[in-house]
Design a protein around this nucleic acid. Structure first.
Ligand SMILES: [Zn+2]
Ligand SMILES: [Zn+2]
Ligand SMILES: [Zn+2]
Ligand SMILES: [Zn+2]
Lengths: 142, 142
DNA sequence: CTTGAACCTACAGTCGCTGTAGATCCTATA
DNA sequence: TATAGGATCTACAGCGACTGTAGGTTCAAG
């Protein structure tokens, strides 16, 4: 039986994070000592490791919840699991594309600044006016 | 003189967001009508446009605050402005690098899954055990 | 003058944690 | 067995950058 601190160390999680996962129903309520402290077994260890690894790969807690639910039905088709992963891949690709646009624009601003005075700084000029940008980095809806 | 709604439309901002910027001191307190409604001029319009464009390029509100302060001293060297932009560029590059790692790992998981049952799903296998990953996508500190 | 869209304040909620305060528990050593 | 002090407990506030809501007031068009 593991204390919450030991479980935290074994999975690279903070203690508060484990309690937070319990609070939102992502981790089950564990057994307690007579004094009221949480005690965990290997099932909980494996579940938490799954959650943390999925988080490292960028999955949202909602997606992880879905993956955990799906993995409780071993005989079902894994199409839904694959769909969740596909969606995550698309989101990552979209974020990369956006950041790549920003990278190019930032690099260009920085390269073009040869001024020494703030009054002539190319970076500030570009920030003041999107017309100075080459790319359309404006997100739909914010 | 512009109402908050007109200012919002002109800059692609939500009305609440403008009030939020005022609350945190990023936008100045504007004049008011006798009835208490905010009225803005071109100075505020330009400032908000600057803020929004900087946000589009991924700058944090703290960085934007610094840029706005710096641009109030036109005779000073723009070295600090350039440093803020450089830092932002590095952050964007770091995020791209991390997401690229995730993209490769996600793509591999998805490609390797030929199973039809959840029990044999390669995606779940990988999520259960980071040893199945090729890359070290673990962030230092969570 | 009436209507209704836009505005006002104040506050709660989002996501995924992280930090704090003050109390209690567990365990190792004397 | 007594005590010290690290670990744990609950409850709540805070982060960034907004977004949404409720309930009330103001403005401008017709
Ligand atoms: Zn410059
Ligand atoms: Zn631009
Ligand atoms: Zn599969
Ligand atoms: Zn991994």
């Amino acid at each position: 039986m593991l204390s919450i601190g030991t479980l935290a160390k074994r999975t690279g999680t903070k203690v508060q994070t484990i309690r937070y996962y319990e609070q939102i129903g992502l981790m089950p309520e564990p057994g307690r000592t007579t004094g009221g402290q949480r005690r965990y077994g290997t099932v909980e260890l494996d579940r938490l490791a799954f959650i943390r690894h999925s988080r490292e790969l960028g999955f949202s807690l909602e997606a992880i919840r879905e993956l955990l639910d799906l993995s409780d039905s071993p005989e079902r088709s894994c199409a839904q699991v694959d769909a969740v992963a596909q969606k995550q891949l698309h989101e990552v690709e979209a974020r990369i594309a956006r950041l790549e646009t920003l990278r190019v624009e930032l690099q260009r601003m920085i390269n073009e600044c040869n001024a020494d005075r703030v009054a002539d700084c190319r970076i500030l000029e570009v920030l003041r006016d999107h017309e100075e940008c080459l790319s359309d980095h404006i997100r739909p809806g914010g």
